[in-house]
Design a protein around this nucleic acid. Sequence first.
DNA 1: TACTGTGAAAATCTTCACAGCT
DNA 2: AGCTGTGAAGATTTTCACAGTA
Lengths: 218, 218
Amino acid sequence: MNIPAPTIARLCQLFQLLKRFEREGISRISSTGLGVEMGVGAHNVRKDINYLGEVGEGSAGYDVIKLKQRIAGSLDLAQRKKICIVGLGNLGAALLEHHTGAGIYEVAAGFDASINRLETIQTAVPVFPAYDITDVVKNRNIELALIAVPAQATQEAADRLIAGGIRGIINFAQIVIKPSRPGVIVRNVDLDSELLVVSAMLADREGRRSEVGSQQYK
Amino acid sequence: MNIPAPTIARLCQLFQLLKRFEREGISRISSTGLGVEMGVGAHNVRKDINYLGEVGEGSAGYDVIKLKQRIAGSLDLAQRKKICIVGLGNLGAALLEHHTGAGIYEVAAGFDASINRLETIQTAVPVFPAYDITDVVKNRNIELALIAVPAQATQEAADRLIAGGIRGIINFAQIVIKPSRPGVIVRNVDLDSELLVVSAMLADREGRRSEVGSQQYK
DNA sequence: TACTGTGAAAATCTTCACAGCT
DNA sequence: AGCTGTGAAGATTTTCACAGTA
């Protein structure tokens, strides 16, 4: 309980990395090695792992499988979760396929407001009209949702999902969802904003801003 | 120079929000109003804006247009940037369309390793084989790239982009890119990890972890 | 010897409180 | 009166340094 959010994010990244090591047959790895692979310092890796209690073996680094299981156990990552995708436009449809084979999640449903879209889409995932969101989420015990609808439809989609008992949402629209029930975790992944952020960081780091205003940074 | 990264991210979000206000005909807004819309405190909004120097007018909140222009000027967000997309699978192809109409960026090229894919894809964006990445990026002055290729092909794609002079990369694969030249900004947007993070936060916040190990959090 | 685990220091980021402007 | 701008306090996160262990 109460692991800092950045640590949680890095532990998830670490979890994925350990799965790769397992596939590649690497069975033991040091914090330094992990740090290189994750792009963070070895200190940071050890500190993060330390939130889970002791795992390493004194001198010989971490056992890949044990560490992976420890993270999965602590963060409830062991069993597949059911997810759904709301909005089956270009992005939503791509997500539908993208995640099917991943192994971490089962895509249990797709939703779209357009009946026409539901009839023409080619997919093995069962799809439903948007007005069924609440019922389907409830009846199939879907835990997580990806929302890939136009900005102005996002809040309503979220409300329906939450009414059905959804526990977490990843939102691809450039609008902030106001959860109608507390405890729902929302993460925003706005592609346009990501591009802006990269541009802005370049401008800031290089001091290449245009001189529209007169004020300087303090 | 030297604006904190979280502030840069929020300023970009703010920039998008102001564009929406402009479309909706809202011309003036207070820090409180902005905070509600962005899901952060009014203090935070003022502090962020303050990095740009003075903008507000003492008593009456911020002028939407002026504030937007100030952000654009300081963060070099005013003119469209050229971007490209590497990897035209489900996700890459969706991104190709997703961004075409956004207005912030011009999608100047797409790349894929499969010639067959290049011949069959339907798009108005010019597409090229992967081995042309370096030349096309250089000749067309493309500044930013989205990488949506399989994990094992990611580093090579990045190397080619960087050789062509790319300045920023958004990476959709679950692998950390090691830039072959300093100064390139890389942001990772791994969809699987995002889902894991949401799961993990739920587990952590609710103390619902399974008792695989014996240790507790400290 | 090579590595982890962890308290403490440092850096970063957020929140507060209130002076100052319109 | 209502709102911004900002130094200072507070909280959080990262980095460090080194004791402890196999």
